[in-house]
Write a protein that binds this DNA or RNA. Sequence first.
DNA 1: GAGCTTGCACGTACGGCGTACGTCCGTCAA
DNA 2: TTGACGGACGTACGCCGTACGTGCAAGCTC
Lengths: 212, 212
Amino acid sequence: MPTEPLSRRRIVAAAIGLIEREGADAISMRRIAADLGVGVMSLYNHVPSKDVLLDGVAEAVLSKIEFTDDPDAHWTDRVRLQARAFRQIAHHYPRSLMVVVSRQLHSAAGLLPVERALATLRSAGFGGADAVRILRMFIAYIVGSLLREVGVTPTFAPVHTRMIKADSVDAALFPEVSSLAPLLDECDHEAEFEFGLELLIQAIVAHSARSR
Amino acid sequence: MPTEPLSRRRIVAAAIGLIEREGADAISMRRIAADLGVGVMSLYNHVPSKDVLLDGVAEAVLSKIEFTDDPDAHWTDRVRLQARAFRQIAHHYPRSLMVVVSRQLHSAAGLLPVERALATLRSAGFGGADAVRILRMFIAYIVGSLLREVGVTPTFAPVHTRMIKADSVDAALFPEVSSLAPLLDECDHEAEFEFGLELLIQAIVAHSARSR
DNA sequence: GAGCTTGCACGTACGGCGTACGTCCGTCAA
DNA sequence: TTGACGGACGTACGCCGTACGTGCAAGCTC
């Protein structure tokens, strides 16, 4: 049974699997090697360091975004689709999201979504500077939303099934928070994401109408 | 020279200082203890674990937000001020931002900004559900923006003073990225932040006008 | 074939990490 | 005087990333 030879791709895949199964904190070169049934130092024949390996993880996850672009559709619909494609990866690789977000990559995998988005915005008639600004704004919103969704950012839903019995101090110091507790507790992530996305798109439409 | 006694507050302050001076990766119980001129294990008399200590860091940073609210101002101006107050901490504690963002806290320090924002939105006439949705959207945008500003998120400014000599492959595969490279390279963070903030506020105004 | 280079898997070892546990000492109440 | 107690500290364990050296198999040149 000649095991398939070690390779950068196999190592990155194992790392992603490990992160998704046991969380980003559980990842270590030793665990990855054990998962692959090899010695620790063998990994270093294919990957120069753990840091670069994590770059590979981020790149691999990013490259799995599935864009289904229709050049004939209205640009607002194309933006919607691209934003949702981005959001997909937070569902397929939730525990890896923090890894993706916490390192900037200079690779083609990171550039493709940018290229697509810029092309869409340019084709909608936006100037270069506007396209870049708008893209940055969308990315900020999407990244922030996904972080909340994955549960890593301060949800500011303070308690997560514990608010019900908020102590009296809470109600006195934070009247709004305490009276809106039920709403803060629950969050339909998809609906929230779509709400903000729609608002953003409408804002862009209004902005472009205003400035021409 | 009787050194001031060890305390949770002193430990947290030392941790913040260390993070800002040497980066979030450099933080370790041993380094903190060394900075304080103290044995490592002494820290554990005041802090149960490194994790909880980092919670303390996040809480301390968050509690340093300076809100200057004017109840008589228009709600759009109050939202602007609150968003900018939030952004301040990214400037005062840039390297700590990732720590703040990467752990959700259930403390009063985390709740205060929420309380303020909800009160502002409610006083502007928004219903509870709308106020929560709008707040979540703003937080997503602000968190995403600050992450980019601090340089931790994929800026999608691909190269950072290296794009100029983009190889020819790049121009062929990514025409938009390569032609807009100068714009992607530079980023006036304050202007970008304000641009998105204004767009968001206008979107909310339009949304509320539409739904009544 | 013989000899040699090359590539890759692997073991050992080092310095650093978080922290469980035990010790020691200064302070204060009885 | 004595006893309890809180807090500072040292030691030790099991992790971590990785520098470095060893050994083995495949492919090259004569």
